[in-house]
Design a protein around this nucleic acid. Structure first.
Length: 1220
RNA sequence: GGGCCGAUAGCUCAGCUGGUUAGAGCACCCGCCUGAUAAGCGGGAGGUCGGUGGUUCGAGUCCACUUCGGCCCA
């Protein structure tokens, strides 16, 4: 019975991953990993899950986020931390409402009110979890361990109450206030639109563009000129803005209707005055105009507050258009509002929310604002206030749903959080936070904080956390209860309306108690106070919801046990999201935490220890975007979107069918295909790699399918699309009539094609994201994932497979040999497990590399440098496979079996070393590739050792680097040996000396002379790799090596600075061979520098370089120079023939499909010069090829014979399998 | 218009606090090795490190300006 399950080299990673998923589920591994770890317990590592909106399907960017989020908790868990991972869902907000509006075919506040807020809200609740199943499937499939069962949900009562509590705290601190916010407003729908929606609705239209006179007070005949494309806002004008630094002129227009004196920017004079005859009266700086008073064009009403109708400075005035004097109507422009507030010019809003001019507007009252433009202009003209009348074509936003409805900028009453008052604290908090990459801190985020404006908190929407402010309808007093209980204390019947609704419809979600419209029925009175408290109508920005999650996820402070849980999980050690969250979640978390949890409050709340900055997160990894292979952001509308399933489960794609030769218009483009082929449009098919060599495809239609089809190129994708006027034909599949017939397909059908090669799988997808810095934008494609997989994961898998094959053959069983676990102490007493120091150099090297890798990976992960950790692992796997195992293969084939004690010490060393390294590597890889790691660990450690080890690698401990097993000198020696081998192979290549041809010797001359001695037994390795009989280290190779002695700039730079060029010059002038001799002999050289004192340079301050002189089979590199002895003696030549013959026989074995334990019998027929030579090496040949017998003579009957060329000789080799 | 990031070989990307021969993988070509490897090894070709100017003994790396992309915001 084999110890290890054999590992097939027919890779199917998705299948492996499904097995592991089933194992995790069955054994509840995730739940077990959350349990504190007894002795090894190192406390809690706090992770916050940023709640995704399950309002759309997850894409590749979410995969990146999830795999980064998963990595660190797994790592910390293995290190002995407890890492609770509570999932969460962001459920409120505009996207949800928009989705529901789309379903209902309605849009805007009024339409929603008409439909009914009650059913609308219920629809929102239903909509929120529409894609949850897909999200959960991806989350699980990609291996992101997070507690989905106990997720926090932002619309749940408990969560809402926590948010209320935070708002109530802010209210108590005076940090909530009501002001105005200018939004893009859709008057017909009675709704504000988000930036994204506005961006969708721009159209090019013609609008009036008028220049209006604003007569200056106290200077008859002088007017300021201002330009506007929205005449209807003139009625609400309160100020004129100028640029302080700009030049203005007073001009006199001498003729025509416009005769008079005007003030405008000098730079706009020509554009505005045109050819009107005029002269400049005077020139003034803008700053001199400040304070100038004027008469507004309309006086329907007095502005509220402030000191209106005067010239004020503003930073947004430019000379790009207009007059350089800007009409300011704070009610209808964001800049206007801001500058109006700053300058205290008052506020006037003569348009009501439905877009109609207000009652105050005389003859214009009740008409839609944009429709009164012409009449207003006529009125101005009549009153002599119109300077010029024109039109402009420009882009103007319209409602994206009702595209005849223009949007207007409109100031709405809005609630704000006074973040600016506490911004210093927020900035200090940010500075204490550790950001990855570092530039976010003072860059994108720091800049954002430095330009902070108060947080516009309220939304005039329906599906959100209701703002918990109740206002007394008589006194105006405000009250902000922090929970349902606090409301009930004010009025026990407060929720009567909801309770009644629920009685009528028991399916009504209990959580709607704290939502619109029911919460709007909640009122109370207070004893001794007139009036009734009624809630304000608004809901809040859903970013405030998610920013409350550090405490709201536990229902803090109301829920039972929430204080303890919050106490334990505040602040977070680690969070991670994509860069677009800078102004989103990263900000809302930081701002809310800073404002709510100031020191005084923390003390008041009785938090055990006061949490200093940073809170609520210490380390924040900011992820880049996942783009397509051309660097464009993936989006469905651009058709450059690859669903994650293509990577993790099945490489499949829907395509349009074109039947070859059906006489249709596409035939010329399609060409012809055989019944074994499919044609594909020449396109890269969203990064799918159907073009690669040996690719086989399957066509599927319902239950029928045709497999083993070879893809061939057809016409260009664009041509297909153009010929059919159908973009779907970009991805066309051309089928032969026979295949199309078999599947019942005709041109124009859509069919699934699938790659016969299994998809890369979740581990590969994860690994792909780990190997490059996650904060860079990543270009993602199937080919890219396959490449990353091949480089490391497949290499490792092959090592793993090799090991299990031979370990099973030899009966290597760690448990039977006495291992009691996987740590060094558990292995020390096992049979054949020798101390590392006693093993051969190759084993010591591998173990040393393993320890170095362990240290490197640990250090990199501690610093959140995922890619560095992944690269260290990649390098180790490469060394393990391509050096250690390649060099060790023969040790595994050596005679003797572990089970019957006949194995050699060396063979056992190879097994123990490989086994231990693989098991440790499995642990190191566990956070990265949790599936493969667990499969490997389960097979290599758990299968033999059973309960003596953790049942899953994710419950095992993280390896700790053992410094005593690190041998840095050996590492550098091995590196030097590998360099020497490279040079030797380069020399062979350059001189056409094939490696099969043995040579007598190689001379090696190191740049560092001490290396020659320390290379030690590695000389044998070099000899074997280079196929030479001897390696010599001559003290000097002057005849074929030239030296260069140069300064070690890094060491010398700080010491001599500006004198560097002098030293360089002096060294160049000297004889390098002499310098080297002096350096070797005395350990230092003195160089004369100009007229100053000579400078003495030690070996560390100089660098000796060697180069090969021409005319030798020599190669040089940093390590030194090697020279091959190229003479091929007759003996060497004959030995070479032997190796040639082995090569031919092995090829024949392969061609004959012989099993690799099959014995053979060989007959070689050729000239005696050859056969005599081969006879000398008969044993070597037989050993290598598993031949029981080598005969020289003609091939026996029935043998597979082949004519071959061996050196100058032609021979016939016959191979026969020997039965038994 | 403001802010941030990026630009390095045909492609995808490394390059730590400045150190003088700028690296890797893929693809390509040549050669080799091979009974773990949809492999491996060696070599070759391919780079004025987006441009200009500056700081420095020394710049892919620091500074300024600039061009082109990307993202965020207005």
């Amino acid at each position: 019975m084999a110890v290890f399950r054999s590992v097939s080299t027919q890779y199917d990673f998705p299948a492996l991953e499904q097995r592991v998923l089933a194992f995790w589920k069955e054994r509840e591994i995730f739940a077990k990993s959350l349990a504190p770890r007894g002795d090894a317990d190192r406390g809690t590592f706090v992770f916050y899950e940023g709640p995704p909106t399950a309002n759309g399907l997850p894409h590749n960017g979410h995969v990146l986020t999830r795999v980064i989020k998963d990595l660190f908790p797994r790592y910390k868990t293995m290190q002995g931390f407890t890492v609770p991972r509570k999932a969460g869902w962001d459920t409120h907000g505009l996207p949800v409402e928009v989705e529901v509006e789309k379903e209902l075919g309605i849009h805007g506040g009024e339409a929603i009110a008409e439909y009914g807020i009650e059913p609308f809200t219920q629809r929102c609740i239903e909509s929120v979890f529409r894609y949850t199943a897909e999200w959960e499937r991806l989350t699980e499939r990609i291996g992101f361990w997070v507690d989905l069962q106990d997720a926090y949900v932002t619309f749940h009562t408990r969560y809402v109450e926590s948010v209320w509590w935070a708002l109530s705290r802010l209210f108590a601190k005076g940090l909530l206030y009501q002001g105005h916010k200018v939004v893009w407003w859709w008057p017909q729908g009675g709704t504000a639109l988000s930036a994204g929606e506005v961006g969708q609705g721009y159209k090019t239209v013609t609008d009036p563009a008028v220049v209006v006179r604003f007569p200056v007070d106290g200077d008859d005949g002088l007017s300021l000129l201002a330009w506007t494309t929205t005449p209807w806002t003139l009625a609400s004008n309160v100020a004129l803005a100028i640029g302080e630094a700009l030049d203005y002129v007073e001009v006199e227009v001498t003729e025509g209707d416009e005769a008079g004196r005007y003030l405008l920017a000098d730079g706009r004079r020509e554009a505005i005055l045109g050819d009107r005859p005029h002269h400049v009266v005077r020139t003034v700086k803008g700053s001199e105009l400040i304070g100038l008073r004027y008469r507004p064009p309309f006086s329907f009403a007095e502005p509220d507050g402030g000191d209106p109708f005067r010239v004020i400075p503003a930073d947004f005035v430019t000379l790009d258009q207009g007059t350089g004097v800007v009409h300011v109507a704070p009610a209808f422009g964001e800049d206007d509002y801001r500058v109006g507030r700053e300058q205290g010019v008052g506020f006037l809003q003569l348009v009501s929310p439905d877009g109609k001019m207000t009652e105050a507007c005389g003859e214009f009252a009740g008409r839609f604002c944009k429709e009164v433009d012409r009449d207003l202009i006529r009125d101005l003209k009549r009153r002599g206030l119109l300077f010029s009348d024109g039109q402009v074509r420009h882009e103007y936003p319209f409602c994206w749903r009702a595209d005849d409805d223009p949007l207007i900028q409109y100031a709405r009453k809005s609630w704000f959080v006074r973040t600016t008052e506490k911004i210093d604290g927020v900035i200090a908090n940010n500075r204490a936070t550790k950001w990855y990459p570092g530039h976010i801190q003072e860059g994108r985020f720091g800049d954002f904080l430095a330009n902070n404006v108060d947080w516009a908190l309220s939304r005039e929407r329906f599906w959100g956390t209701p703002l918990n402010i109740w206002i007394n309808d008589e006194t105006g007093a405000m009250d902000a209860p922090a929970s349902v209980d606090e409301i009930l204390a004010r009025n026990p019947d407060a929720f009567a309306a909801f309770d009644a609704a629920r009685e009528k419809d028991p399916s009504l979600s209990e959580h709607l108690r704290v939502h619109k419209p029911w919460v709007d029925h909640v009122t109370w009175t207070k004893a001794g106070e007139p009036g009734t408290y009624r809630r304000v109508p608004e809901v809040i920005d859903c970013w405030f919801d998610s920013g409350c999650m550090p405490f709201a996820q536990w229902g803090y402070p109301h829920a039972d046990g929430s204080r303890e849980r919050f106490e334990q999980a505040f602040p977070a050690d680690f969070i991670s999201e994509a860069i677009d969250q800078t102004r989103g979640w990263f900000y809302s978390l930081l701002a809310i935490s800073t404002l709510v949890f100031d020191e005084e409050t923390q003390r008041e709340l009785g938090l055990g220890d006061v949490r200093e900055y940073p809170h609520p997160y210490k380390h924040c990894v900011v992820l880049g975007h996942v783009c397509d292979r051309t660097g464009k952001k993936e989006s469905k509308s651009k058709r450059n979107y690859t669903p994650p399933d293509i990577i993790i489960d099945r490489v499949t794609m829907p395509m349009k069918v074109v039947v070859a030769g059906d006489g249709g218009p596409l035939n010329d483009l399609a060409g012809t295909v055989t019944d074994e082929q499919v044609g594909l449009t020449r396109d890269d098919h969203e990064g799918l790699d159907f073009q690669r060599r040996g690719c086989e495809l399957t066509i599927r239609k319902d239950d029928a399918s045709v497999s083993c089809l070879e893809p061939v190129g057809a016409g260009k994708a664009d041509d297909f699309a153009a010929a059919t006027d159908d973009n779907d034909y970009r991805h066309s599949v051309i089928l032969s009539p026979a295949i199309a017939g078999r599947l019942g397909l005709t041109t124009g059908d859509t069919v699934e094609i699938e790659d016969a090669t299994p998809a890369p799988g979740a581990d590969a997808f994860r690994w792909f994201f780990y190997v490059s810095p996650p904060w860079n934008n990543t270009r993602h494609s199937l080919a890219g994932v396959r490449l990353a997989q091949k480089e490391t994961l497949i290499t490792l898998y092959n090592v793993y497979s090799f090991f299990t094959i031979y370990a099973n053959i030899d009966g290597f069983d760690p448990a039977a040999l006495g291992a009691t676990g996987i740590e060094a102490a558990d292995l020390a007493k096992a049979t054949g497990f020798r101390p590392i120091a006693e093993r051969g150099e190759l084993d010591r090297w591998l173990v040393s590399e393993l320890e170095l890798t362990t240290a490197a990976v640990t250090a990199a992960l501690d610093d959140y440098q995922v890619h560095e950790a992944a690269r260290a692992l990649s390098a180790f796997v490469d060394g393990l496979s391509n050096w250690y195992l390649r060099r060790s293969r023969k040790r595994f084939w050596a005679p003797g079996e572990v089970g019957d004690d006949s194995a050699s010490t060396d063979k056992l060393d190879a097994y123990w070393t490989t086994w231990e390294c693989l098991v440790t590597l499995g642990r190191l890889l566990a956070p990265f590739t949790p599936f493969l790691a667990d499969d490997l660990f389960g097979n290599l450690a758990v299968a033999p050792l059973g309960e003596r080890v953790a049942e899953s690698v994710h419950l095992a401990s993280w390896p700790v680097a053992d410094e005593s097993r690190i041998d840095r000198a050996l590492s550098s020696r091995m590196a030097a040996a590998r360099d020497v081998v490279s040079l030797g192979l380069a020399a062979r290549s350059a001189h056409r000396l094939r490696v099969r041809q043995p040579l007598s010797a190689v001379q090696v001359c190191f740049a560092d002379p001490t290396m020659a001695e320390s290379l030690g037994s590695l000389g044998a390795t070099v000899a074997e790799e280079l196929n030479v009989k001897a390696v010599h280290f001559p003290a000097s190779l002057d005849e074929c090596v030239q030296y260069e002695v140069r300064p070690n700039f890094k060491a010398l730079g700080p010491k001599i600075g500006k004198r560097m060029p002098l030293v360089q010059k002096a060294l160049r002038a000297a004889d390098p061979a002499a310098l080297k001799r002096e350096l070797d002999a005395s350990g230092a050289v003195a160089v004369a520098v100009g007229d100053g004192d000579p400078i003495t340079l030690g070996p560390d301050e100089l660098e000796v370089r060697l180069a090969a002189k021409d005319g030798f089979a020599a190669e040089g590199g940093r390590v030194g120079v090697i020279v091959l002895d190229t003479e091929v003696t007759p003996e060497l030549e004959r030995e070479g023939w032997g190796r040639e013959v082995v090569n031919r026989i092995q090829t024949m074995r392969k061609d004959l499909d012989l099993a690799y334990v099959d014995r053979i019998s060989i007959a070689i027929d050729g000239p005696t010069a050859l056969t005599d030579a081969l006879a000398e090496h008969r044993d070597a040949i037989a050993g290598e090829t598993l031949a029981v017998d080598i005969a020289f003579g003609p091939a026996p009957d029935g043998a597979e014979a082949r004519e071959v060329q061996i050196g100058p000789h032609t021979a016939t080799i016959a191979v026969t399998r020997v039965a038994g």
